[in-house]
Write a protein that binds this DNA or RNA. Structure first.
Length: 781
DNA sequence: ATGACTTGTTTTTTT
DNA sequence: AACAAGTCAT
């Protein structure tokens, strides 16, 4: 296939120019990803080696998709060697290799925000400060922004402007907290998200040979979504490209929506100054949306002062105007949206996946969830509480982390008394004090309590040493066992199993499913590595490295199923839908009140709306509610000021929507049979709807001992007495995640029973029956 | 040291 | 309203 023939003129020009730094300004829907993927394919065709190409993205999803698309052009055998991933994941990999130069060891932990906040909280307490004044989240934000701008603790303390501002905000001690935070992270052998960038910068800055090593390796560097890079990221890219200057950055200043976490729109606005002689390409033809949508979006974004001049246009049909509807209440807003979805679905003969409901804040999803459940409209929620943020998952990961990196203090704190083993706050306080006094980690203290002078009674000492022995035992198996073997055994033998699987309340059931799901993910990980022939890189530490930077798992039963998408506008970036509903167009929601104060942040909100509108291919609805239930009471709301900023030529407004619509019990209002619903990992737990009653509740001891756990929605085969007797080769089962498959092999006994199953779609998998979730579909002969 | 009760906070977006 | 954290009682 000829790569260049598939592109329009401006796209082709951008792909072909490789003689120096280039900036591709890609308007919404103009084929940005296409240019990136084809450019990489083109480079490979020109003789570049895949392992010499570095492509940086912001999300794992973007990286994954791009890799797939490139693989479909040049084949996976080449694509798999590309250095392609998020800034954070690529740099984390480099840091593992070079960690010792920076005083870390290669098994360092990556602290997530919760860990960082928790560490800050302890530090704030230790300094005798009030955590109401010094809110960990606020302090973390300050530290994070400082790191993004490469201001290290010393510089922070010595910067008069910063000191002045902190004093004005009544937070004069932040500099000291920052210093302590850095010291403690290092001691815990942990890096937070920002450290992954800062430390790379420091590494390259301090060790020229290391910088050269990587600058040499990467013959060509590509950066996606360049408008979202922050200062450090920009500096690192510069470190890697300043000699060869083979760099292509792609982005759209009109879609810069992450400045709240340090993104510098100036990076893209002044790229041509930073890289002298850089060539600028503009992609202005929008292939996604009809003309009215593009024009409406343009008329809005024109109101921003700071931007690169461009004129996005569409050659598609004129299409519908945008629709604006003002509902009486948030409930009615949801009704209107559901009604429109049904209408359009009928008229356009499209499916639920063609619809998206976009909102400013996650909490707005609730009224839509409720209404869609009532009306039996299938939906999935993206974002919200991610799978790995669930308590039970975090607990398990904390075990893994402590095993992989015993100095990890946040993991230690989390599990020292989980499950309860009689080590309470007072003991923990003593350990903390002792660790701080001796400047060693918690683990060091309990490894040698007498030496460090830990003052606890004999009983407690015994408990501590039991805990120590438990973890040490796992540590010794780290190098010999794969992640699944060790990981599932930790769950079984640490007492987590007993805690989570010993209860049959609905909440406990949801947790059990999450744990099962998690084990499935570990198993997949090991399988994948095995298939790639990297079985020696399938240990628990390897799994942790991967998981630390993941925010969500793609659930198998959501992929490919026909559902309406619900998500924040932020997470919709890069996606497209035939019909988009932008809901909650109200003055105190969108623009967010916190952003209304400065011009820059107001412009960012405007760009956010621009992003939302340009997601739509065909229909775009904006809605608002006059009354909204928030913070436990009804609020009166005014329509968003942005509504008046869209040229009225491209939008129709309906002020008052018929209130008869909220008349209850319309025929379609009566729910049909509601299927017992498994809580998928995308759904937040705060759903208001009553949980479907779980039918015949199986005695819990059975669940624990007798595996395959059958009843919950089994039709037909429920007469499982002994698993050994009823499961045999040839039996067809349906696994909750992998779908249908046939058992090809059974082995092991008792707890270690394993079945090898050939799945229709997912291939061959080995299931540990104790954990596997499936139903028997058909017995073999 | 654990559980019931009370109080305070939350809602901006996320690698 | 829903949830987390902190307090008090056991």
């Amino acid at each position: 296939m000829n790569i260049l023939e598939e592109l329009n003129d401006s796209q082709r020009a951008a792909v072909q120019y490789n003689d120096g730094p280039s900036l591709v300004i890609a308007g919404a829907g103009s084929g940005k990803t296409r240019v990136l993927t084809y450019k990489i394919a083109y480079l490979l065709e020109q003789g570049y080696n895949p392992w010499n190409i570095l492509a940086l993205t912001f999300t794992n999803k973007a990286a994954r998709e791009m890799k797939e698309r490139i693989a479909s052009i040049v084949g996976n055998d080449k694509a798999k060697y590309l250095y392609m991933g998020t800034f954070h994941s690529i740099f984390a990999r480099i840091l593992r290799a070079e960690a010792t130069l920076l005083g870390y060891s290669s098994n360092f932990t990556i602290y997530d925000d919760a860990d960082s906040r928790s560490l800050l909280k302890t530090i704030i307490k230790e300094k005798g400060l009030d955590d109401k004044t010094y809110k960990p989240a606020t302090v973390l934000k300050k530290i994070s922004l400082a790191k993004n701008r490469l201001i290290l603790p010393d510089a922070y303390a010595n910067d008069p402007d910063i000191s002045e501002r902190d004093r004005r905000e009544n937070l004069p001690e932040v500099a000291k907290i920052y210093a302590a935070y850095s010291q403690r992270s290092l001691q815990a052998n942990a890096m937070d998200f920002d450290d992954l960038l800062v430390q790379i910068y420091l590494l390259f800055n301090k060790y020229e040979d290391i910088r050269l090593k990587y600058a040499d390796r990467f013959d060509y560097v590509l950066v996606d979504e360049y408008q979202d890079t922050n200062f450090v990221q920009q500096r690192i890219v510069y470190q890697l490209t300043k000699q060869k200057r083979r760099l292509c950055v792609v982005g759209d200043d009109s879609q810069s929506i992450y400045s709240f976490r340090g993104a510098e729109i100036d990076n893209i606005l002044s790229f041509e100054q930073q890289y002298e002689g850089a060539k600028l390409f503009k992609l202005e033809q929008n292939y996604r949306s009809t003309q009215n949508i593009v024009k409406a979006a343009n008329s809005l974004i024109k109101r921003n002062q700071f931007q690169i001049e461009k004129e996005v246009y569409s050659r598609k049909s004129e299409g519908d105007k945008l629709h604006y509807k003002n509902a009486y209440s948030d409930k009615e807003e949801a009704l209107i949206v559901c009604k429109e979805i049904k209408r359009i679905k009928r008229e356009d003969q499209c499916s639920y996946t063609d619809f998206a409901i976009l909102y400013r804040t996650n909490s707005q999803s609730r009224s839509f969830e409720e209404e869609m459940r009532k009306q039996n409209i299938p939906y999935k929620i993206f974002g919200g509480l991610s799978f790995y943020q669930r308590k039970e998952i975090k607990d398990i990961i904390a075990y893994y982390r402590l095993v992989a990196n015993p100095d990890d203090e946040e993991a230690f704190k989390r599990i020292i008394n989980y499950p309860a083993r009689g080590i309470g706050n007072s003991t923990m306080d003593k350990i903390t004090a002792c660790a701080v006094r001796n400047e060693v980690s918690f683990w060091a203290v309990i490894s040698n309590p007498v030496h460090f002078g830990l003052d606890v009674n004999k009983g407690t000492l015994g408990k501590l040493s039991a805990f120590h022995a438990l973890i040490s035992g796992y540590q010794q198996r780290l190098d010999t066992e794969d992640a699944y073997l060790l990981g599932s055994d930790i769950i079984k033998t640490s007492g987590i199993n007993k805690d989570i699987f010993g209860d049959s309340s609905p909440e406990a059931m949801a947790r059990q499913e999450n744990v099962d799901e998690f084990l499935g993910a570990i198993q997949n990980f090991v399988e994948e590595r095995r298939e790639e022939g990297r079985i020696e890189e399938a240990g628990l530490s390897d799994f942790l490295q991967e998981v630390a930077l993941l925010t969500d798992v793609e659930s198998d039963d959501d992929r490919g199923s026909d559902k309406v998408s619900l998500m924040t506008i932020h997470s919709s970036k890069g996606l497209e839908f035939q019909t988009v509903f932008i809901v909650g167009m109200e003055q105190n929601i969108f623009p967010s009140p916190q952003s209304a104060s400065t011009l820059r942040s107001l412009e960012e909100e405007r760009r956010l709306l621009y992003v939302a509108i340009t997601r739509a291919e065909k229909h775009c609805f904006l809605t608002s509610a006059q009354n909204r239930w928030r913070y436990g009471k009804t609020e009166f709301c005014n329509p968003s000021c942005f509504l008046n900023e869209i040229d009225p030529a491209y939008i129709t407004k309906e002020e008052e929507y018929s209130s008869t619509i909220s008349r209850p019990r319309a025929p379609w209002d009566v729910p049909e049979y509601m299927e017992p619903r498994r809580q998928t990992m995308y759904e937040t737990r705060r759903s208001l709807m009553p949980r479907p009653v779980r039918q015949p509740e199986e005695p819990t001891h059975l669940r624990k001992i007798i595996v395959p756990e059958p009843t919950q929605q089994s039709i037909g085969v429920t007469s499982l007495e002994t698993p050994q007797g009823t499961l045999h080769e040839g039996t067809i089962i349906e696994h909750q995640r992998f779908g249908k498959g046939v058992i090809v092999k059974l082995e092991g006994s008792g707890e270690n029973q394993k079945a090898t199953v050939e799945f229709q779609h997912s291939g061959k998998k080995q299931l540990l029956l104790k954990f596997a979730r499936f139903n028997i579909v058909k017995q073999g002969e």
